[in-house]
């Protein structure tokens, strides 16, 4: 009897627990729906708005004014009168990101190596918190820093090379600012990747007589490769979408045939979207959403390519292992048959 009672009690307790679980599930599911619907709604909204300039007529008094679709993909000049083209914006965006990677990737990786393995504990803690702090600084601050420090610096460099810049407002300045902005992201992820390399591998390398520097460069960095790569992917994401800081230092031109000259001003997709939006109306406003679609596409494609490269590297490693295993198996087989 008593047993029965306590069992009932237990059942009730369990039931209550189960109900609680279910409620929690429902709440979490609702939050999931909310979060994902915000993304979906904004993407759908941008796509609908961005397609409008190609379809609707924005002209008044019988004029026809819409975004010319052929010009959009071929013209080398970005304007808001319906004849603008994106190719140079796309090229400049990728170019700026590439230049910034040349600066940020080596800096971040070696900074991460220094923080994780070489620096004394106190120093590494200080630098690490500084790097974390840097990651949370808003981009407009980097833009101001760029205008005040980087641009004059680039002007001096250009003078040393005997060319002229627009007071330092140039593609190089934008690349440097973007590099500074993505360094914290790449560094933080690289530190985690380096820390994840097993101590046994490091010990093994040292025991085999490799110097500390050799171990750091050849064992640790190689082992942390895929984590570092993930950091670079995130850094690229931040660089591609950056508008405020770039717009403040890149100069915002409308013609991009000379974009490869790093001392000349240019325009990226995001900076063109932002530049002059306060005065924009009608077609000039809606066409910025079309730029938004292009930017989203570029970010998706870049991420797909980078992930493919990452997976390809992994596959190659795996194939190598299997091959080695098979080779080994064959050797054993041969030995046994002898």
């Amino acid at each position: 009897m008593e047993n029965q009672l306590s069992r009932n009690k237990l059942d009730n307790k369990n039931k209550r627990k189960i109900v609680g679980d279910k409620i929690l599930h429902a709440i979490l599911f609702f939050l999931l729906l909310l979060a994902s619907s915000i993304i979906i709604i904004s993407v759908v909204f941008i796509i609908i708005k961005g397609v409008q300039p190609f379809i609707y007529n924005y002209g008044t008094d019988g004029e026809i004014l819409k975004q010319d679709i052929i010009a959009f993909f071929t013209s080398s000049r970005w304007t808001y009168n319906g004849m603008g083209g994106v190719p140079f914006l796309v090229l400049t965006t990728l170019y700026v990101v590439l230049l910034s990677l040349i600066i940020s990737v080596p800096t971040s990786i070696f900074a991460a190596l220094f923080i994780a393995k070489i620096a004394p504990k106190g120093l590494s803690l200080v630098i690490r918190s500084a790097v974390d702090l840097l990651a949370s600084i808003p981009s407009v601050i980097f833009g101001l820093f760029g205008m005040g420090i980087i641009c004059p610096m680039v002007r001096e460099i250009a003078e040393a090379f005997g060319t002229q810049t627009y007071g330092g407002s140039s593609i190089l300045s934008a690349a440097i600012v973007i590099a500074i902005m993505s360094i914290p992201t790449i560094t933080t992820l690289s530190i985690s990747a380096i820390n994840a390399v097993p101590q046994s591998q490091i010990n093994g390398s040292l025991a085999l007589g490799a110097s500390k520097a050799q171990t750091n460069l050849k064992v640790i960095l190689k082992g942390a490769k895929s984590g570092i790569f993930a950091g670079i992917i995130l850094g690229i994401g931040r660089a591609l979408g950056e508008a405020t800081a770039i717009q403040m230092v890149i100069g915002n031109t409308s013609e991009g045939s000379g974009f490869y000259n790093i001392f000349m001003p240019g325009s990226t997709i995001a900076s063109s979207m932002l530049s002059g939006i306060g005065e924009a109306s009608g077609l000039g406003y809606d066409v910025r959403f079309s730029l938004g679609i292009v930017l989203m596409l570029i970010i998706i494609i870049t991420n797909l390519i980078l992930n493919a490269i990452k997976n390809y590297n992994k596959d190659k490693q795996k194939n190598g292992l299997i091959k080695r295993f098979l080779d080994h198996f064959r050797k054993v087989n041969d030995y046994v048959q002898k």
Binding site: Y80, N252, T253, E255, M264, P265
Partner: peptide, 11 residues
């Protein structure tokens, strides 16, 4: 921004 060929002002 209907500038002549080769003219490319910063904005």
């Amino acid at each position: 921004d209907l500038w002549n060929e080769g003219v490319n002002p910063a904005k």
